[in-house]
Amino acid sequence: MTTPILSVTDLCKTFRSGGGLWRKPRQFHAVSSVSFDIQAGETVGVVGESGCGKSTLARVVLRLMEPSSGSIRFEGEDIAALPEKALRPLRRRFQMVFQDPYSSINPRLTIREALLEPFRVQGVSLTTAQEQDTVDRLMAMVSLNPVLAESHPHHLSGGQKQRVGIARALALQPSLLVLDEPTASLDVSVQAQVIQLLQSLRGQQTLTYLFISHDLALVRYFCDRIMVMYLGRVVEVMPKGATPAHPYTRALLESSFEPDPTQRRSIVRITGEIPSGYDLPPGCAFQARCPKAQDLCRQTRPELGSVGTRHQAACHFPDSPLPDTQTPRSGTAPSQETPHAV
């Protein structure tokens, strides 16, 4: 296998909050020991609900936030500890599309100026003719009417703004594009348009996507590989099309509704909401909501382990198409039927 374009090892991000002269500040583990590789040309999805650390992960990977520990290798170079000044010229090679298209363009700039900002910032000088060409090319790339170049962002719809965001991120031809919920604030019809655009861009040029989303169905549609996060940890890594092994991923799958009325009013088994990320109890972070949690889950935190080809889950009792994984993988768990009751 070639060198991965992005290789993240044991990445942690901890926030401190509160605390006073005498009180210890509380620690919030937004991202805990996350490791993964992305090969060039791959589309990897990170899925999870609010507070699972997926957006923090995106920001730490791109050094928009400082990692607390761990390494980030981008095209072989460790960028985790690089000083900001040395990092700036590298930034053209990894870019990000942000969730909120409404505030992602400076309201005082025209679309044209916004699209030329990457060149300005990176010190690429363009002649007037080149500027015109570049703007035209970028607008055409994301199927925007070139007339819009002279407008201000408030004249554009959310979908159009997000297209500008994508064009701007791709202006300097990065090799890695991190997409942080790029469609979450858009209408479903526009979401599909944006996904279609991202798919066709991937076809036209070598692009590697790290796609952050809360929508498992969308990630399953768009990504080659899926990482599921829960409370700052990766709980499952699976290839596209695999049956989820972790109960949380199963719950996510049950909760994402397909347009299929034969599924109508089927029972949703998941209960409760994501607990706070402060002062996590020992054991599996999901045990409080897990329909099959046992004593072992409350005591020992499961590590990511293989449950199939290129398929890992952090669960003591993973569901799996493989028949022999119903028994605990590690430790001495009480042997009993896997309870499926709610």
């Binding site: 700036r88 010229p89 930034r91 969730q99 505030s103 990457p118 965001g165």
Partner: peptide, 17 residues
């Protein structure tokens, strides 16, 4: 806190810019 500021940082912009 606006996204366009984060975008600019992500593009590699310095404080003055």
């Amino acid at each position: 806190g606006e996204t366009f500021v984060e975008v600019s940082r992500c593009l590699g912009a310095g404080h003055a810019h």
